[in-house]
Design a protein around this nucleic acid. Structure first.
Lengths: 146, 146
DNA sequence: GACAGTAGTCAGAGGCTCTGACTACTTTGG
DNA sequence: CCAAAGTAGTCAGAGCCTCTGACTACTGTC
């Protein structure tokens, strides 16, 4: 499926997404958080404040639980997460973010806010609001966990 | 960087992008185009009508030329592309889409159109137009090849 | 014509992801 | 209660993707 003259909405969505991700990653590396990978980050991102089960992380990241387990292993070794037994189910464990993860999140959030501000300056307040509104609405039919 | 209550614009962009990509991939597999991978597709997508150099494909896909070469090798074996000498530079070769690639593109384009229609129905014509407008504008500051 | 730069390849290593098979535990239904 | 079915997670093995570093061949400049 080679290039076309008119850009489809998919590419249009992907371009700013990638630009943002690149910025966040560069900033995290700059701040010393250079010991995890994009794949690990995509899992870590989905850990809830009280911990999340491996299977749930896998589903939301759309990867197999084996892959999720592999990635969480790395994150655990690097000190970003810990695993504690799930009190409600002896088979399960809860993956919890460690202090290091929340510190990284603060850096990431800062960059996201910065980039969003740049976008708002470029688009204007009104169009930025429309963009977020449309995307939020779109989530209803594109996000299985909405 | 664990989960948060408010979704940032990055996630909001990613969700529909992934949904669209999943749909396109499923449809291609359904139509018999099941012998290439997402990574190969992301390179193939960037081949121009008159062929494109490996280095250029690599830059636009944001991968190294070694990786691009690896992926083009697979695509060539699977019959999606051919490589012809670049008449203007004896070092270079042009990667060209084969008939099979253009056929796959037709299927992909069909699905994209279908999904875009669904989105338009969900958002309404006005908001869909605003979405594309905002994204196109955003491309100016997020796409190095804009 | 020497030299700096560019197009592409080769070799090696590591990371990501999958399928299939398995253990341990939970839930369901008789 | 207990047997069967289902779920959480792990282990093993394979293949794909991606990178860094080093290299050849050619181009363009001075």
């Amino acid at each position: 499926m080679p290039a076309e003259s008119e850009l489809n909405t998919g590419v249009l969505l992907f371009l700013p997404y990638r630009a943002l991700e690149n910025r966040v990653f560069a900033a995290l590396a700059e701040a010393g958080f250079d010991d995890f990978t994009p794949a690990q980050a995509r899992v870590m991102q989905r850990i809830g404040p009280n911990g999340t089960r491996l299977t749930e992380l896998a589903e939301q990241a759309q990867i197999t639980k084996q892959t999720a387990g592999f990635l969480v292993d790395q994150l655990e070794k690097a000190g970003y997460v810990t695993r504690i037994p799930d009190p409600t189910d002896k088979r399960a464990r809860l993956v919890c973010g460690a202090r290091k993860a929340w510190e990284a999140k603060e850096v990431a959030d800062g960059v996201v806010a910065e980039v969003e501000k740049e976008w708002e300056e470029h688009l204007g307040k009104r169009r930025m609001k429309q963009l977020r509104e449309a995307l939020t609405l779109l989530r209803e039919i594109t996000d299985p966990w909405a």
